[in-house]
Design a protein around this nucleic acid. Structure first.
Lengths: 173, 173
DNA sequence: CTTCTAACCAAACAATCGCTTGTTTTGCAA
DNA sequence: TTGCAAAACAAGCGATTGTTTGGTTAGAAG
């Protein structure tokens, strides 16, 4: 499938290092034929990003369903996020690969915000101490998780284990 | 200065989006003249990265000097890191812009490890609960901080304030 | 069978990339 | 003043980029 192949390439090599020829070759068509489906590389990327966001939202919402305890819900969401980011299909990797260089398209910002809103709600449920800034807490947690894509190795710890450990550092006894 | 101008461009636009022509224009020479100082773009980037690492190490070590309390030391280090990453000269921004695409040069990995070793030592000093994985704690904290480059806006909170809030979420009362 | 359209091929376009080559300028030392 | 090496210029190389154009194929509808 075109979108998922492009997502895999964007996620693995980044936006700039993935050429339209790379994507075409992965799908098995000629480069020019891509422009029958998308009018530009950026439009294709937006479609890929949108696909990744909906996949991630689904994965997280499925994971937190039926869990009542706020901390357990957040942990389940983090595990789902890390698995989407680091496991074999890595559909969420594209969410963290587009650099902010020269401004990323407006639609992408909106999509990203819609995903982070899920975590915003989960954090709002937590019985956090009064002094904790929920926004910074959310951005910090997402950063700690997303940064893992720079150091994670498949041979080491499992993504779920990493997620649990990252969260345990923020959760007081 | 050549290195600092290149660092500013690499930090702002990323490695792939910064051309040798961009750097030459910023310094005020012709593109080909850069190859009198560095034999390749990658060699120039390694020099820039090395410069950024030594700047960052100096800033952090200066910040923690004379501080005795382990948590205060780590907080001072985080504030210094965030300021180098986000403040006006942003000499540390280049440390987080090179994507892992197709493997980053070996020297860069060594340099990055030498910087993270400073944080490793600081965390080893902490009176952390037995269950906390120090390595994951370090990677999570650095990720939470480095990720701020994707959402930080100069008009908002100060880098030092962000650093304190990020750390307060991990520090148990 | 004809007609139409979506999908793709084949070939190339202009622009930009990192980099090379040969020459000229600059600045300092003898 | 002369000599020399570092530094910068001037021009272009081959390769790759995103993209365009025009023709070809396949399958469904009439």
């Amino acid at each position: 499938m075109l979108i998922s192949e492009a997502a895999r390439l964007f996620g693995n090599k980044g936006y700039e290092n993935t050429s339209m020829r790379d994507i075409a070759a992965a799908v098995g068509i000629l480069p020019g034929s891509l422009y029958h489906h998308f009018s530009s590389k950026e439009e294709l990327f937006v479609a890929v990003y949108s696909f990744a966001v909906s996949q991630s939202v689904d994965a997280v919402k499925t994971a937190i369903k039926t869990r009542p305890d706020p901390w357990v819900r957040l942990e389940a969401a983090c595990i789902a996020h890390m698995q989407g980011l680091l496991d074999k299909n890595r559909f969420a990797a594209v969410l963290v690969t587009h650099p902010s260089a020269s401004g990323l398209p407006e639609q992408v910002v909106t999509l990203r915000d819609s995903y982070e809103a899920v975590f915003k709600d989960l954090i709002a449920e937590l019985p956090l101490p009064a002094g904790i800034d929920q926004r910074i807490f959310r951005l910090g947690l997402l950063g700690a998780m997303n940064w893992a894509i720079t150091w994670y190795r498949p041979c080491g710890e499992t993504p779920a284990s990493i997620a649990r450990k990252l969260l345990s550092a923020t959760r007081r006894e």
